[in-house]
Structures are given as structure tokens and as C-alpha cells.
Design a protein around this nucleic acid. Structure first.
Lengths: 132, 132
DNA sequence: TCAATATTTGCACGTTTGTGCAAATATGCT
DNA sequence: AGCATATTTGCACAAACGTGCAAATATTGA
């Protein structure tokens, strides 16, 4: 078995592929991104070059201000958005680094898990057929 | 109401960075991954070195067989799982390549979008504070 | 054709979730 | 303090979702 010492996206890498994947495969992040309005909100924050207030975000999507506030809170709880109060408004920003890191970290974990679960010296076996 | 005329917070003309991100930021994939049972099912398929029947998967998670069948159908509809009938059983496999490609593609799109939205020659501006 | 095994689907039920409205809270300004 | 602006929160409600059970469908074997 080979030890992986290349540069993965996740800083700390447990040796067991399945165990580390288990830690990353949590529904919270996906739940947060699994709503179209919330994705619209996130899209706005990603494309904006400056922090956005709740009212700013509410202008772009056709939902009530209170709903946007809840969506932003959900995104913040999921760790994909940061918030900072400035005066009476709250500035929200997309934490793009956290998002991309989570996505790539998960992809890397799947690759590692696959490498450790399935023997790399692939015998002629074809476990999975291509998409129909 | 302040009118920010100098630097529009969000570009109304979506450069291809934002446009391609828009195409990838769809809730379907995240909806499929946003349930703990479904992630458990997917985890089983990823870690398994051979295709799994519905009954196989149902053994690992404490959910009724019919529920597992529905979850597998949802994962298949989301494009993260493939299915193939063999006799009277149906073999399910995780489409790891599709999953990792989707995750990395999304991360790349976010990076591209960020690079095109925010000027790379960053002025001293700090749009987003670090996490609290 | 009939029986056995494997999976899917129709139905009902309880829970979660997204939403709007109104009230409450937070902050700044005069 | 009082008022205006910005955001959050309690409440109610409809829609979506996950689940189990039972019936239906698919496929193989006798």
C-alpha cells in the first residue's frame, strides 16, 4: 500500500480513505445548497464584488426580506457565508475559499476512498457500467 | 437610499465566469445529497468494490427496502449513481467520476467567476472579513 | 403455467421546510 | 428621548419530503 504524501486540498488527511470521506459526507452543506432561492442568494454574493446587505440581496430574488434573512442565516450556519454588522446593516459575503475547499476536499476524499477500497491494479473487472 | 453609481456591486452583464457558474449552481444535485440516509446509501456504493443490489444497500442503513429503492432512484436521477438490471436484481454503482467532476467543476467555476468579477489587481480593499 | 425472489409503486401519515405577515430587536440620527 | 432605517424572529400555513406497509411489476426457475 502506498502512502499519499502529495498535496491534497484538505490540510489534515487521515490515512483511511473511507473514514475521512465519512467525515466530509455530511448533509448540512448540501441541505444549505439544495434550495433554488438560497442558491440565487449565494450566486448574488459570489458575483458581487462588494459585501451585500440583506436588502441588496432581497432585491435580486423575488422573496420577502425576512425570507432572505433566514436564507442568509442558513448559508452562514453552513459556513459558506460570512456576516459582519456595520451600523444598522449587516454585510454578507460568500466565503468562496471555504466553498471551493469543501468541494475539492470532498472530491479528493472520494478519489482517495476509491483508491483504497478498489485495488489500484485493476483486474479486468468492470464493477460499474457507463451511464445508460 | 444611497445610489452607488461608482462601483456597481453586481455586474448586470454576466461575464462568462458568472454565466457558467449559473449553469452549474443548480439545486438538483445538492437536493439529492442533502439527506443523511441518501448519503449513507451513496457512501455504501462508493466504498463497495462491487455493484450493490437494493437489498445489499438496505442492509447497511436502517431504512425499509422500499425507501432505499426510492433513495437510489433519486441518486440515479441526480446523476451520481448508475443502475443496471441483472436478472431479477438491479445493480447500483456510484458514478464517482461524475461526482468528483461535478464538485471540481463547480469549484473551478466559482474561482473563475470570482476572478472575473473581482479585479485580480486587488486594491487594498477587503470585501469580506474572516469567519467569526 | 405457477411459484419464488427482487424491486418498484400507490397510499397514508408525520415531519420538515420555505414563505409572508406582523411584531420585536438593533442601530443611527436629530 | 423619539423617530427612522435595517434586520431578525414568532406565528401560521401550504407544499415538499422521508418513511413504512401493502399491492403491483419484473424476472427466473420448476
Amino acid at each position: 500500500m502506498e502512502e499519499r504524501s502529495s498535496t491534497p486540498s484538505v490540510p489534515h488527511t487521515p490515512s483511511d480513505g473511507a473514514a475521512s470521506l465519512q467525515l466530509l459526507l455530511r448533509p448540512e452543506l448540501f441541505k444549505a445548497l439544495g434550495d433554488s432561492t438560497r442558491l440565487q442568494v449565494l450566486m448574488r454574493l459570489i458575483t458581487a464584488s462588494t459585501p451585500q446587505t440583506v436588502s441588496d440581496v432581497a432585491d435580486c430574488c423575488g422573496v420577502h426580506l425576512s425570507g432572505v434573512s433566514r436564507h442568509l442565516a442558513a448559508l452562514k450556519a453552513a459556513g459558506v457565508v460570512t456576516a459582519q454588522r456595520r451600523g444598522r446593516e449587516v454585510l454578507y459575503c460568500a466565503d468562496c475559499a471555504a466553498i471551493t475547499q469543501a468541494l475539492r476536499g470532498l472530491a479528493d476524499a472520494i478519489d482517495r476512498c476509491r483508491a483504497s477500497c478498489c485495488p489500484p491494479g485493476g483486474e479486468g473487472e468492470t464493477p460499474c457500467p457507463p451511464n445508460p
